[in-house]
Design a protein around this nucleic acid. Structure first.
Lengths: 195, 195
DNA sequence: ATTATTTTTGAATATCAATTCACAAAAAAA
DNA sequence: TTTTTTTGTGAATTGATATTCAAAAATAAT
């Protein structure tokens, strides 16, 4: 039996992340991914069903670790809802700080993919959202948070986060992301009015 | 000289808005736009240079009226910065409330188009942003607003707005949009903490 | 060394859809 | 009525690229 030459599956998905980040999903060519991964075109179809399948697996890779982090945070009894909320934001920022190309793919491709392939899109994202909403609800219950519409609030915050990540990816330094972290936390907690 | 049969230019752009909203830009076919507009394929290329050109003109149509509204609001001396900020949000909500398909095109296509065709993208958007930032700065100067990073704040708010519009387009009623309006204004002003 | 199994390959295929352009139709001008 | 100008048409062209698959290469088993 023949051995696999290194890890082609991993090389392909990493090349795809770079390519999708650079050119966008639709303008990315399989042949370019193959070149970047140093494999033949045919090898891509050995490890992945098609171009869509690669993107779907990238999103698995993005959301599984963030969700696992969330679970840990949510179950930590000693944290207040405010702390949990801040750590939740941090787990998203941390994940993308390590791998800015994934942030680019997230900000550019997730919404379209979720719309087009709702059944196939990673389940970890939905689980992440659920945990996040639970944290907000617990804060409302303990009167630490205002009683605002949880669904609207979490969409607003995630949308804002995505937009800031989009900007950050143009200059993905630790320092610029820290400024974003602090601003978002501060604003989410107390709003814009100075009183 | 022959007269134009009705207004093909308008019929085409309206059919394109519907088609892009339904199928997304890349999956939209020129032949479908032609059918929906009741014109021949060739006629589309009489009035528009290509598929991209139609999308660029749609964004002109979206942002010109919003920017004009903004100018009016910004120059109204009797408004406080907080009022101006709220009316600014309203002018965005109002524009999309009238034409939900435009909201779909905005939430799904603007970022990619701005990245790919920065020189050709409507200038009205940039002007709108500038006016918005001026309002925030005036609020900071008058100590009505906290001294937070204007750039980060406006991106966060616009990103949140976009995400809520995305959700709203799935059920684009006046009532559901009003709930979003109120929630956004309330949250932006005072944040989540209940103190 | 020979055979069997698994992995890799990339030229060829198949499909798809944007754009063109030669011609037709309609209205105005002569 | 005939000619000129403008507007409209859609079959044919063009170009692109995702995917397939028959063959080759590499290793393991006998």
């Amino acid at each position: 039996m023949r051995h696999k030459e290194g890890n082609k599956e991993k090389a392909i998905i990493e090349a795809a992340i770079e390519t999708f980040a650079e050119d966008g999903f639709y303008k990315s060519k399989i042949v370019d991914i193959a070149k970047k991964a140093n494999v033949a075109i045919g090898s891509i179809y050995v490890y992945y069903k098609n171009k869509d399948d690669i993107l779907l697996k990238i999103f698995d890779q993005i959301w599984e670790p963030i969700y696992n982090d969330m679970k840990r945070i949510a179950s930590e009894k000693s944290y207040t809802p405010t702390q949990k909320f801040e750590y939740m934001l941090d787990s998203v920022f941390d994940a993308f700080e390590k791998y800015p190309e994934k942030a680019v793919v997230f900000v550019n491709e997730q919404n379209r993919l979720m719309k087009e392939r709702p059944k196939s899109f990673t389940n970890y994202y939905e689980l992440f959202i659920k945990e996040g909403e639970k944290i907000i609800k617990s804060g409302i219950k303990s009167s630490e948070f205002k009683n605002l519409n949880v669904r609207i609030f979490r969409r607003f915050v995630l949308g804002g986060l995505r937009e800031l990540l989009r900007e950050w990816t143009k200059n993905p330094t630790k320092r610029s992301l820290n400024q974003i972290r602090d601003s978002v936390k501060y604003f989410c907690k107390t709003g814009i009015l100075d009183k």
